[in-house]
Computed example of a mutant assay.
Amino acid sequence: MRQLKPSLAFIAMLLLGLATACSRDEGFHAKSIAGLMPALEFSLTNDEGNAASAQDTAGKIRLLFFGYTSCPDICPVTLGRLGAVIQGLPEERRERVRVLFVSVDPQRDSVAKLHAYVDYFGDQVIGLRGPEPALRKLAQRYRTTFGYGDPDETGFYEVSHSSGIYVFDGSGAARLLFRPDDPLAAMQDDLGQLLDEAS
């Protein structure tokens, strides 16, 4: 008996259907990373000098962002935007959201410096730091990286890092990727949806 071979058109339709299913945004504005990234997990030190892990903020929506306090542009702008998004939420909902700012510049970002920096951006921001190998491992876990530029005559150097913000739900599952050009209203709406899920 002759075996029937699927047509190229059928294969193309099947692949298109799979791609559409994988990229479905589940009603969110931001890019969905559900099932594409591992759950939130880390072992670092917070901006008060205490050991910190994902369990410390379990049950809250977590926004993970890599940066450094000497950053001239991306970091302050991003943290300012996130602060505006969170402040736009009803007061009782703000306490259910945390921004996890991971410094990838352990040489300059002491506990005290990190604490002063994140404190400027609001109570919902937690600074995290650690030795470079631990930071490399965490960055690799979420498929990103960072690097150091050459110091200038004053010793200042820039740190290259991602501008993406990884959004995790209360259970620690990766859900969304916020990007620099995402509108504040869209980000706020997405956080609202995640908070509704946990209600």
Rank of each mutant, 00 (worst) to 15 (best):
S7N: 02
L36G: 03
L100T: 11
A112C: 02
V125L: 07
L16P: 01
S110A: 07
V104A: 03
T20I: 03
P131I: 02
S43M: 03
S103K: 01
L82N: 06
K60M: 13
T69L: 09
D119Y: 01
F42G: 09
F10K: 04
F28D: 08
K137L: 07
N46E: 10
L36Y: 06
Q107S: 11
L14H: 00
G27T: 07
D73H: 09
Q107T: 12
N50W: 01
V85E: 09
A52S: 15
A34I: 05
V99C: 02
A30I: 13
A21N: 10
A139S: 06
S53A: 11
R136T: 02
R81I: 13
D56E: 13
V102Q: 08
Y120K: 07
H115K: 15
P76F: 06
K113W: 00
D56F: 01
L128I: 10
G147L: 01
R136K: 14
K60S: 15
S110D: 02
M37H: 15
I126W: 14
A30L: 13
K60P: 11
F101Q: 14
F146L: 05
A9V: 07
I86D: 04
C22E: 12
Q140M: 03
T57V: 15
V99Q: 12
T78E: 13
Q140F: 04
I11K: 06
L63D: 12
F42H: 12
G59Y: 09
A52Q: 07
R129N: 14
A54S: 15
F28G: 05
D150Y: 03
L128P: 05
F28N: 10
Q107Y: 07
R143W: 06
H29P: 01
G27D: 08
P90F: 08
V104F: 04
P133H: 00
S70M: 04
F66G: 03
G49K: 14
V77S: 12
L135Y: 03
E26T: 00
T57Q: 13
L89R: 08
Q140I: 00
D105W: 14
R94F: 06
L114E: 11
C75L: 09
G35P: 13
P72I: 01
P131R: 03
V77W: 04
F10P: 00
Q87H: 11
D105G: 12
E26L: 15
Q124C: 02
L63S: 10
L63I: 15
L14R: 02
A116G: 11
A34P: 00
T69F: 09
R143E: 09
A139E: 00
A116E: 14
V77A: 12
P151A: 04
G49A: 12
A58G: 04
E92D: 10
G149K: 03
G130K: 05
I11F: 06
M13R: 14
L14W: 04
K137W: 00
G88M: 04
V104E: 01
E95W: 00
R141N: 07
V118C: 07
F121C: 12
L63F: 12
L135T: 06
Q87G: 06
E48I: 13
G59H: 09
G80A: 11
L64I: 11
C22K: 10
A21K: 11
R141P: 04
